[in-house]
Computed example of a mutant assay.
Amino acid sequence: MSHYLSQTDNPVGSSVLLIDTHASIDAFLACADQRFRAAKNLLQCLSMMSVSSHDPHDLNAVCEASALLLQEACDVLGILTLPEESLH
């Protein structure tokens, strides 16, 4: 397996964003935790928005950012479920 794995949501099939499969477990967990918390905070902001007081683009931007952050966190955690011999 490659030292770097492509993230799921790379646009048009390009491998711009990569995950280092040789990173430490602590690094994977910290990275995923940061993204989960950021997505949670965005969704929390969304839950406090008033229907009448927000720009229609705000909803789309918050949802898109949350989805990207959650997918990145899931991709990083997915590395931890791969067989160990495929990571080295």
Rank of each mutant, 00 (worst) to 15 (best):
L43I: 05
S66G: 13
M48I: 03
L42I: 03
C63R: 09
C31D: 11
H3G: 15
S2E: 10
D55S: 04
A30V: 05
C63Q: 12
A61E: 12
L69P: 00
F36P: 00
M48V: 02
Q44I: 06
R37P: 07
V76R: 02
L70Y: 01
S47D: 12
A39W: 00
A27L: 06
L17N: 02
C31H: 05
S6T: 15
L18D: 11
L87C: 04
E72H: 09
Q71F: 14
G13N: 06
L82W: 07
H57P: 11
D75L: 09
E85V: 15
L29Y: 14
S66I: 10
A39P: 10
V12I: 15
H3R: 04
S53W: 00
S53N: 03
A38W: 01
T8C: 08
S14F: 14
D58S: 09
L43R: 01
L29E: 14
A65R: 08
L69R: 04
H57A: 15
S50I: 11
P56S: 07
S53T: 06
C63N: 11
C63V: 13
A32W: 09
L42W: 00
N60T: 06
H22S: 11
S66L: 10
A61M: 05
L42Q: 01
D58P: 06
T8V: 02
E85P: 08
V62E: 04
L5W: 13
N60Q: 10
L46K: 00
T21V: 14
Q34I: 12
P83K: 13
L70A: 05
A27K: 04
F28K: 03
C63M: 15
N60F: 14
R37Q: 13
V62Q: 03
S53Y: 05
D26C: 02
T8L: 09
D33T: 00
S53R: 02
L69D: 05
N10G: 07
A27W: 02
A32D: 10
Y4K: 01
S14H: 08
L18K: 04
S53E: 08
A32V: 15
P83M: 13
G78A: 12
G78C: 12
L18A: 08
I79S: 05
Q71I: 13
A73G: 01
A67S: 10
L5Y: 06
N10L: 15
D33V: 10
N10S: 09
P83Q: 09
S2C: 11
I25S: 06
T8P: 07
S15H: 02
S6L: 15
S52C: 04
T8D: 08
D55A: 03
D55T: 01
